[in-house]
Amino acid sequence: MKNSPLKSQIIKHLYFDKGLSCAELSEILDKSLPSTAKAIAELIEDGLVMEDGYARSSGGRRPQVYSIKGDAMYIITVAMDQFTTRIQLTDLLNNPVGDMMVVELQLMDNPDALPKLISYINQYVKSTGIPKDKFAGIGIGMPGFINVIEGVNYTHLDAGGESLTHLLTQETGIPTCIDNDSSLIALAEQRFGIAKNRKDVMVINLGWGIGLGMIVNDDLYRGHNGFAGEFSHIPISDSNALCSCGKRGCLEIEASLLVVVQKAIEGIKEGRVSSLKYTEENHPKLVGDAIMEAANAGDQFAIELLSDSGYKIGKALAILIHIMNPASIVLSGRGAVVGKILLAPIQQALNKYCIPRLVASTELLISELGFDAELIGAAILVMESLVCDQ
């Protein structure tokens, strides 16, 4: 999608803010009305923007409202975790188009992960039957230490020192951008989710690890090297269990969904009464999903496991609150589906470990986007990059 910077800015604001008038766009972009009107007219002619009725008015002529045309371009959104990759085609209104591709793709210690990812994306793009010039881009969320500017993941998907972004763009023929999964989930919550219009929000990505995206003063905070938000590796215990980062006592080895799965398997083998079943062939993903489903159905063992995890997460959140003093904390990602079960033990831990004045001003929220947040964040990543590419 090659446009002038002004037209790209208009597309971007219509994507995020939906219907806007020419006067509103002129004011937001600090551009003259004539130049804004001219750019809008050209975008309408190009089939990217359309007239969308009239705004309400308390008197006088009602202004024409413009909106982005959903099927003008498409985005390939990719959401990766340690075990599974989801690929979904969306339009410019974030509506899913066609079926999602879900593939098992282990990232840890897998040198074939990158060529397989490229193959899956190319296969999916081909299956859509859409010409490549109709794609605004490919947005990919993935775990790991990621330098967004250089397009490098220092943890997974080794591109041999080459920029992963450049390699993926070259291999797919479509502009591609990557970002940390938790950062994208935070972006999704900020732009289209429960954190919209909130300036200081900590978004917790509840998954195989426990990620964190930080919205500080209405902007995504990345830290000095872009690695801010490694919430999983806050040391909260004296456990000797070794974390994937090489350290001991991390939150990840005490409370992540992967640890909940391991405890569930051990409990079932020891004869704990539960509706949960387990065989050696079960994938951790299947067990994790089963635990959350059983907990929401009232299974006492599943609730016990998640409550223990929630309490430890709450203990770590107390540290975060003392440092960042956020207005809100959002529980998002895969584990948001059991957010109501986690809330009570998290709050219990906050009451015990947090200064009352601080915790009283911090609101705990459950994401409405949930497991879709990373896919939506991947689309946002593409749209955010439009102006940068000009």
Rank of each mutant, 00 (worst) to 15 (best):
M292S: 08
I11M: 09
I265Q: 12
N225M: 14
D112A: 10
I130A: 04
V125H: 04
L220P: 02
T77M: 11
D289F: 05
Y74V: 09
I76R: 02
V148N: 05
D299G: 10
I40E: 00
G229M: 11
S237I: 08
L306E: 11
F135Q: 02
N180K: 15
G70C: 05
E280W: 00
S21Y: 00
Y54I: 04
P63K: 00
Q347M: 07
G246S: 12
G53W: 11
G151E: 09
I138T: 07
M100A: 11
E293F: 00
D181G: 06
Y54E: 10
I234Q: 06
K196D: 04
C177K: 15
P111D: 10
G151P: 12
H13W: 01
L306T: 06
D299H: 11
G249N: 06
C22Y: 00
L364M: 05
Y353N: 04
A295N: 00
I291L: 11
T362E: 03
Q82W: 10
K132N: 12
E51Q: 11
E252K: 02
I121P: 02
G129T: 04
D299F: 10
G246K: 08
S119A: 13
I194R: 03
G370N: 01
E252P: 01
I178Q: 11
E24V: 00
F301K: 06
L306P: 12
S244T: 09
P115K: 13
R272M: 13
C250M: 03
M383R: 05
L386G: 05
S328W: 03
F227P: 15
G129H: 05
N296Q: 07
G333M: 13
A241N: 10
Q300N: 10
T85K: 15
C243R: 04
A79K: 15
M383D: 04
V216K: 04
N225P: 03
E42I: 06
A344Q: 07
I11Q: 07
N225L: 15
Y15G: 03
S232E: 11
A336C: 14
S119L: 13
C354Y: 06
P235E: 07
T155F: 01
K132E: 09
T77S: 15
R357F: 13
A295E: 11
A136Q: 06
S21H: 00
D372V: 09
D179A: 14
M202A: 03
G310M: 12
M292R: 00
S385E: 15
G377E: 05
N3S: 06
Y124V: 06
N205R: 09
F301Q: 09
R56I: 06
